[in-house]
């Protein structure tokens, strides 16, 4: 009973004064939280943390299910089958956008975008002994010897590749000046760069910061409006003279089956926002070097559709992947 009250209060708080009946009854039972990743990875660990918190906040069980496969297509299929009553929710990251490009079945409108939790800006890292000191240096070396340098990142038409192309475009690097080498994960790309098999890696903070601390890697540029606290010496792209659209970031959020009522989305997201502000979660996010970036339903939907458009524009421009 107390849990129900709490949920109702939360729902009311989130949805404003006139919360309709549907939201007051929410949640009406256990919540299925379907993930698009394998158990054990960073997204999974964070989702399980969140599930733990939501369980306490909402007073119902939040059952995590891993439905990895098809770059998220399998999870999408599960969500498409579920009732839009808020009892089924799903994880989402920027990698879904790449899948939407490739899939004939799913697109950004196949689900509703409930809320975003965190953001993760892209950055460029090189080996400390690579002789590349800055973004300008990188561009100069690439132009002097086209095809000599290579950048490692995740997959093709991925968020990482789009981020890289935004930079390359801004720096007026031609096709083939720097080779894009797709790896099966960002982690693999970092390892290959660490081993000197590639020159540059496009990655995230938590994948490189230990190596930066140990002095083997160095960050030469970050794709964000401000410098990152972990790498105060690394210039932003704009500072180095290569302005790009810095809203292009990796994100982690929550989706629900299409046509889930907005009140229910707000009810859940109110709880999500509360969990995200709990001290242990704040610490976890800090430790993993994520940037808190809570966005409610409308803002998130807008954000994602803008990203989706950008992804389409960029991949079309490059003539890569997609159907």
């Amino acid at each position: 009973m107390r849990a129900l009250m709490k949920a109702a209060v939360l729902a009311a708080a989130a949805a404003g004064l006139t919360a309709p009946v549907a939201a007051q009854d929410y949640p009406s039972g256990d919540i299925r939280y379907i993930l698009h990743v394998k158990p054990g990875g960073a997204t999974d660990v964070m989702a399980r943390r969140l599930a733990d918190g939501l369980q306490k906040a909402l007073g119902v069980n939040v059952v995590v299910e891993n439905r990895d496969g098809g770059s998220g297509a399998r999870q999408m299929a599960q969500l498409a089958r579920a009732k839009p009553d808020g009892q089924t929710i799903g994880s989402v990251t920027a990698s879904h956008l790449g899948m939407f490009l490739q899939s004939n079945t799913f697109d950004a409108d196949s689900v509703t975008w409930a809320c975003n939790m965190v953001l993760d800006p892209y950055l460029l890292a090189v080996r400390s002994d690579s002789g590349i000191d800055s973004l300008a240096d990188l561009v100069e070396k690439a132009k002097a010897a086209p095809g000599e340098l290579s950048v490692a990142g995740f997959g093709e038409a991925s968020g990482g590749q789009v981020a890289w192309q935004m930079f390359a475009d801004s720096a007026e690097l031609g096709d083939g000046d720097i080779n894009w080498v797709p790896y099966s994960s960002v982690g693999d790309a970092v390892v290959a760069t660490l081993g000197g098999h590639n020159d540059i890696a496009i990655a995230y903070t938590d994948l490189v910061q230990q190596h930066v601390k140990a002095g083997t890697l160095k960050v030469i540029g970050v794709m964000s409006t401000e410098r990152l606290p972990k790498f105060p010496d690394a210039q932003t792209y704009a500072e180095a003279g290569y302005p790009v659209d810095t809203t292009w970031q990796q994100f982690r959020g929550i989706v629900m089956p299409a046509e889930t009522p907005a009140e229910i989305q707000d009810a859940l997201c109110g709880a999500v926002q509360e969990v995200m502000q709990a001290p242990e979660m704040v610490k976890y996010i800090e430790d993993s070097d994520l940037v808190p970036g809570f966005m409610a339903h409308e803002e998130f939907t807008e954000f994602v559709h803008a990203q989706d458009e950008a992804a389409k524009t960029w991949t079309a421009k490059l003539g890569i992947a997609g159907n």
């Binding site: 158990p39 054990g40 660990v45 230990q210 601390k213």
Partner: peptide, 20 residues
């Protein structure tokens, strides 16, 4: 794959597996 899960387990504990 198992080592990857182990890394997940370490990060949960607030530990940073890495060169340090």
């Amino acid at each position: 794959a198992s080592a990857a899960v182990l890394i997940g387990g370490l990060t949960i504990q607030g530990l940073q597996p890495g060169p340090l």
